[in-house]
Design a protein around this nucleic acid. Structure first.
Lengths: 203, 203
DNA sequence: GGACGATGATACCGGTCGGTAACATGCCAA
DNA sequence: TTGGCATGTTACCGACCGGTATCATCGTCC
């Protein structure tokens, strides 16, 4: 992989933002288009055009469209864990508060941004070929999510902490999927309260 | 729409099944391929080939691929409500048993067939264009599912029956989505118990 | 026998798909 | 000044996309 330019700065008096590298622009455009329109619905030509770059620059920076998709999902995963830690961090010794903070933030994001659900979850639907390089990312992400939820539910002292963790993960995934058809005022509207009920029923 | 042949029978001594009409074969092949490989991943040529028919027969029976997709989803919806009634029917005066029967059946199907989740839910992910004729089917289906769940939860006498219904719908949708990456041994394994916990917490 | 409806066969259309080759340009650093 | 290196430009490739036109064939029913 070509190492991306990491923002060279001209020290002119007026702070003019340097144009990101073609790779970075293509990467950003790809993530945006894939998320909004779907992976299969977006061609490499439209990615290059949206990035203000050319298809050649795309193929100089990424091996193939499939690899570009995998890279995009890896970035989504990184950001997801950053969000996770930022959300649960303030509630270190209080697993119940940490869990509720996750669902609070989730519900908020459903209302404001992320109307197209979860990029990784959507990829699980769109990419049916097991050989696709992005499938490994999808599976790893969901496994890790399960592991983290279990750890929180165990720390919570839940009666059946594995069942509770699974139930919460189903609620999260369901929120992503449901949002695509009924929006934030569909079942998503009850996401946080349902999670709270389930947690309370196990503690 | 062309009226499909409804199974003309030759009265020969040996009961030989008459070949279904081209329309029926194409319809069946389309549903199967769309479900297993995804809507956008399947071209009209492969549908015709899989059906042992020609592309012309496809376009004589259906206006376009998009309309074919919509018809397939409508059929999935019909079958879903048949399943719903067959599953809840035996528990007419017992909403709790009816709800649990739904989740029991859901968990069973996750283990045996339906490894690719919900055809309608998947379509919600794949079809991002609001103008697509199948989107109306997706939205109508999920609305009706919500209505039915609410009715059951109200009959159950749940404290917050709307929240409970939403929570159960999120669990169902989450089960479909989660199954695509972690299979039946992922969070799906706890689907029924999570649903039961949530129900009990509200009654 | 003859007409008709359903189906097959084949060739075709313009457009887009993912991906590549060859060459030009422009900018920064040594 | 002179390289490189990143990038743009253009043209191209074979394959497939959804969709159509034309004509041949087959079985069935009157």
């Amino acid at each position: 992989m070509i190492t991306a330019s990491t923002g060279i700065q001209t020290d002119s008096s007026v702070e003019t933002a340097p144009r990101p590298s073609a790779r970075d622009r293509i990467f950003a455009a790809a993530r945006d288009l894939f998320y909004r329109q779907g992976i299969r619905a977006v061609g490499v030509d439209s990615i290059a055009q949206e990035a203000g770059a050319t298809k050649m620059s795309l193929y100089r920076a990424f091996e193939s469209k499939d690899e570009l998709v995998a890279e995009c999902l890896k970035q989504s995963e990184r950001e997801a864990w950053l969000w996770w830690e930022a959300t649960t961090g303030p509630h270190k010794g209080d697993p119940r508060a940490a869990l509720l903070a996750i669902f609070d933030s989730l519900a908020l994001k459903a209302k404001t941004c992320e109307k197209r659900g979860c990029a990784i979850g959507n990829a699980a639907v769109e990419l049916t070929d097991d050989a696709h390089p992005a499938r490994a990312v999808v599976v790893a992400y969901n496994r890790e999510k399960r592991r983290r939820l279990r750890a929180l539910c165990k720390a919570l002292g839940a009666r059946d902490h594995e069942m509770l963790a699974d139930g919460l993960q189903l609620l999260m995934d369901g929120a992503y999927l449901s949002r695509l058809s009924l929006g934030a005022s569909g079942p998503n509207a009850s996401l946080r309260r349902a999670a709270e009920s389930l947690i309370d029923s196990q503690t």
